[in-house]
Design a protein around this nucleic acid. Structure first.
Lengths: 163, 163
DNA sequence: CAAATACAGGACTCAGCCGGTCCTGATTGA
DNA sequence: TCAATCAGGACCGGCTGAGTCCTGTATTTG
């Protein structure tokens, strides 16, 4: 799993759609285009508005439009808009006043926080404009040659064990 | 959010503990050490056993122990052991026979899959042995200087909008 | 001004699953 | 044989994710 919510997925789809024009489009319209149920579409867009990612225009010719160019909106921001903060583990949420019920000094905690940062930064680097392109060269996460090599090794081992 | 489950967190904690020795340790023992409730500890270890990450030994002197050296077990494997597959979005799950209810050719889908891969590879590169060390230099995910620069820029903008 | 169209902001519901417990075997060491 | 241990379920309660709906407010248009 390691899931992001369905609503977040919708947010990305809607944002991608909005990226294709500048005139505000209504919930009804966007719902029809994307296939996302109207009330849900509305709900998602409201969250995005509060997060400052889209602007809303009321009245007869109103609707929603991106508040910034698509290359200035990151996937991480979209996730945050819908889900609050990005925290892989409860104890990795740096904003939260969470107290761990397990043994006090589990060194694991600090490491989760770093993994979390890593994931967050990866998502930060993917922009809405990248998502709009069907096969853009996204996030070249693999770092060095040798790390890739080690990885392949680990995967090979794993196959042995699973197969 | 973008959460992994609490159980997965437990799995990492337990595995980390197991990494500190080779003799099998019982659920009771591990529960006492980690602070994780015994039945839950048992449940998690059973999943890990099925996934081939730990070996179980029955009988009076039985218990659990790692099936491999800690540097041969990745965080990704632990996650998979508990949560099945690693899939950021439902539609990004390559194993699943999921049919998207939205409009047919959303280019977003392929991109989610790639983000997913990126995250998965990042988690694959983090090993249990890394988690055991309080402050190991984990996943240097940031790639190039300029990307980091652009990121900072985006964050600055975001602060403006939130403040 | 009045009507129609849109968004804003909640309250509300329903289902799924996560976290947790417990029970009944099977296995093994003493 | 007895006690300790794991195996494999069933089971349950509560949270929250996904979705709907209702009331209010803003804006355009005739």
């Amino acid at each position: 799993m390691l899931r992001i919510s369905k609503l977040t997925d919708y947010a990305v789809v809607l944002a991608t759609e909005l990226a294709s024009g500048t005139a505000p489009r209504s919930v009804t319209r966007l719902s029809a285009i994307t296939g996302i149920p109207a009330p849900t579409t509305s709900k998602v867009l409201k969250s995005m508005t509060r997060a400052g990612l889209v602007d809303s225009v009321r009245g007869k010719t109103g609707g929603y439009r991106l508040s910034r160019p698509a290359d200035r909106i990151s996937v991480a921001e979209l996730i945050r808009a819908i889900e609050g903060s990005i925290a892989v583990t409860e104890c990795a949420d740096e904003n939260d006043g969470y107290v761990c019920s397990l043994q006090g000094d589990c060194g694991v905690r600090a490491n989760w926080q770093r993994i979390n940062r890593a994931v967050e930064e990866a998502l930060e680097s993917v922009r809405l404009s990248d998502m709009a392109v069907p096969n853009s060269p996204l996030v070249p996460l693999l770092r060095s040659q040798d790390e890739a090599e080690e990885k392949r090794h680990a995967e090979a081992l794993e196959v042995e064990n699973h197969g």
